[in-house]
Amino acid sequence: MHLHHPHDGHGHGAPAPSGAAARRPDGTRRALRLGLGGPVGSGKTATVAALCRELRSELSLAVVTNDIYTREDAEFLLREAVLPPERITAVETGACPHTAIRDDISANLEAVEDLEDAVGPLDLVLLESGGDNLTATFSRGLVDAQIFVIDVAGGDDIPRKGGPGVTTADLLVVNKTDLAPYVGSDLDRMAADAKAQRGHLPVVFQSLREEAGVDRVAAWVRERLAAWRA
């Protein structure tokens, strides 16, 4: 699914017209772009923070947040000091977070390019969507792959309900598994439903409060990065 386009870069020395080209105007390979979407409160920002802590010693990283009406997510990441502030940018979305990641990706593309200009070269840019509904997915013109984050407390019927996020995301993360006994969520049923909706696409059940934490998602990111560099 990688966006290997035949026209790497372009011939005029001006910024690339779209996000799909694999090379930057100076001829270097751009960073891998991963999108994280999912409903409000499912743990997208916590997953981004955990990924930054896990990967920052081995990779050059940056994050773009798409907050709905605040800079809360960007400020959480800054407060947690998961990355230096110049590596975190917030995009404003005009009350429509899915528009900014799918229908009109221009602001996010600018944010990614500005980060690459300012603190690059980068290996990986994580783009976090504002909390949205089950139909919110990233444009393939913006990201190379996307993670959809849901949680067990949001209802164990979400995988069964499907929707583009659950069904088509390159990785489905079912977060907060430690809460399952308290909210009466059936993890086996969620896994079976996810399998039925997604076929061979991977699913990770995680709890960021347990020791393994974000390890399996981080491993998936490393695989993606290896494929992107290959």
């Binding site: 005029h12 020395g13 001006a14 910024p15 779209s18 600018e110």
Partner: peptide, 25 residues
């Protein structure tokens, strides 16, 4: 200026031409 840059990006992909490339440069 931000909106101008965003419009130029969209337009260069939509109506590719030397004039808009020059403007971006």
């Amino acid at each position: 200026r931000r909106l101008g840059r965003q419009l130029l990006r969209a337009a260069r992909a939509t109506w590719p031409c030397a004039g808009l490339d020059l403007l971006a440069r």
